[in-house]
Amino acid sequence: MLNRRARAKILFLTPITALLLIMTIFPFVYLILISFTDRAATNPNTKIVWFENYAEIFQDHQFYQSVSITLIITIFSVFLEIFLGLILALSFTNLYRNLWFLRAIVMIPMAAAPVATLFNWRYMLNTSTGVINYIISIFGFSEVGWLDSKTVALTSIILVETWMWTPFVFILLTAALSSIDKNIVEAAQVDGANRFVLAKHIYIPILKPFLIIALVLRILDAAKSFDAIQILTSGGPGYDTASYNFLIYLNGIQYLNFGSAAAQAVILIIVLMIISRRFFNRLVREAVEN
């Protein structure tokens, strides 16, 4: 017989457990099950095919292409976000004014509705009527088809992703930097430390754990980014900007090949789980220490 406290605890945890069971655990189990079948909207007689879907993925050249696109987008955009976010956070901390208003402005790109801002980017990047091509034409450059060919379109996607998510790194790092004892910084400055010495010996060591958090969270999000690709290029031209995540969407939701898309999704989950494990371990350690 449980005591009253334990019963209350179970009762209070019931709604969230029920919601997560119905909406994440069951679907996840179902996903794994259908990944072993040839289920598709066009296929009325579903049968078990075991690992056929998985085997097919690795024979499909589109798999390798989409993985390389995912890697390109993730690596370049996350690198730029961390690099710019770090420089900006250090500049901000050197000035140290009231941050509220500036932070509000800086956060707009990541807090804004992606459809609205991405529509605007698409409109600004338009080859013939876009304002960006007009500006570069003033400087004597010729028209660029920003979303029309593979390399340029990937560059555009990376730049727009960077525009959206640099604020995230920036916010995380400025918040971490604001906890630094000002006396240490002033003492170092009295000893003649310039900005590079300060950054190298005081700021970066303190920021290291936060840089890792930023890195992992950004990689996890960038690897499954969807909105920018869907709205700017819809994966095109052809499949030239279709990331792996986007390919699963096309396969499962657009072409309704449930079985094969489920197998692709299972692989994505496994990879993301491996990446986030280290992060989780770290968070658990910190949580226990507190």
Partner: peptide, 13 residues
Amino acid sequence: LAPPIAIILPLFI
């Protein structure tokens, strides 16, 4: 942290 595509596919069905 789970990718939305993994949940949305079974939910869609």
